[in-house]
């Protein structure tokens, strides 16, 4: 059995660890709320945007040719891996990294063999991993999470759009953690570019919707309106992905730190039990010594 003093120092060290994990949990919870608010504020804009785009599309007879929608055979692929800048958030980053590698080697197996798949890392964790393993890394952006504003995100998004338009890549995909609630985040893989046509299910006219179909005046005209709105909605999508990942990160950290605090509590309870037993044993031994000594004197 370990000495009394050793157990005492261990208890003290576990206690101070618990204090740190507890504080980190609180901080994560506060940040989670803040970025959750951001998502909620983005929602009306995103909804309205898709509503407007739907009403423009409704009046279109033939599809408009928009460069961002050009569906080229995917020869060169870029995977944007969104991770966090900081660790201590459970399997959050490891999962995203694994998923990205899996997408690269299965979905784009052919391109992978020809070494035409590259990664772009948003977030330090993913960047460090990819760099250390020598995977093709097209670029890194870690600063975006310091100030996650729409303007900053737009700047980054602009770069990807240019890469696509200049045919540096034929397809740009995302791998990120989508926020569901504080404890649950879903690993998501989705296509960023080319922009896909809206899914069929949106086209089903509900009775309520039919009433709102009005004879809109379109200014300047539908084609150029759509040409202007598609990049805007891309920006929204990009912003949402980063916000989602950022929020999920805090959720994951909160859960991880909560668990760490629980573990520390268990450990402290166990150690305290050990300590008390050891102390008792030491006292008993001392008494026995004294009694034995007194016995011998008789």
């Amino acid at each position: 059995m370990a000495g009394l003093k050793e157990i005492r120092t261990r208890i003290a060290s576990v206690k101070s660890t618990r204090q740190i994990t507890q504080a980190m949990k609180m901080v994560a919870a506060a940040k989670l709320r803040k970025s959750q608010d951001k998502i909620l504020r983005l929602r009306p804009y995103a909804n309205k945007m898709s509503g407007i785009m739907a009403s423009i599309r409704k009046g279109l007879e033939n599809d408009v040719e928009i460069p961002l929608m050009e569906n080229r055979p995917p020869e060169k692929v870029l995977i944007i891996l969104v991770t966090s800048n900081r660790g201590l958030c459970g399997a959050f980053n490891a999962n995203a990294i694994n998923q990205a590698l899996q997408v690269a080697t299965t979905v784009y197996a052919e391109q992978w063999k020809k070494k035409q798949v590259s990664f772009f890392a948003v977030g330090k964790r993913g960047a460090e991993f990819l760099a250390s393993k020598g995977y093709p890394l097209a670029g890194v952006n870690n600063e975006i999470f310091d100030q996650l504003t729409f303007a900053n995100v737009t700047e980054l998004e602009e770069r990807f759009v240019q890469m696509f338009l200049f045919k540096e890549y034929d397809r740009i995909d995302f791998v990120y953690n989508r926020f569901k609630n504080a404890a649950v985040h879903l690993l998501t893989h989705e296509t960023f570019l080319p922009v896909s046509e809206p899914e069929e299910k949106e086209e089903i006219p509900s009775p309520k919707e039919e009433k709102t179909v009005a004879d809109y005046i379109f200014e300047p005209d539908k084609d150029s309106l759509l040409g202007e709105l598609v990049p805007k909605s891309l920006r929204i999508q990009f912003f949402k992905v980063l916000l989602d990942s950022f929020t999920a990160e805090h959720g994951a950290r909160m859960t991880a730190m909560h668990q760490a605090t629980d573990n520390a509590n268990d450990l402290i309870r166990e150690l305290t039990l050990h300590y008390n037993k050891a102390r008792q044993a030491a006292i008993t031994k001392e008494i026995l010594d004294i009694v034995g000594g007194a016995e011998a004197l008789k």
């Binding site: 009403s55 809109y216 005046i217 200014e219 709105l229």
Partner: peptide, 11 residues
């Protein structure tokens, strides 16, 4: 845009 403007979508 004033009251009862015709439906419009404009950039």
């Amino acid at each position: 845009i004033l009251h009862n403007h015709a439906p419009i979508i404009s950039s």
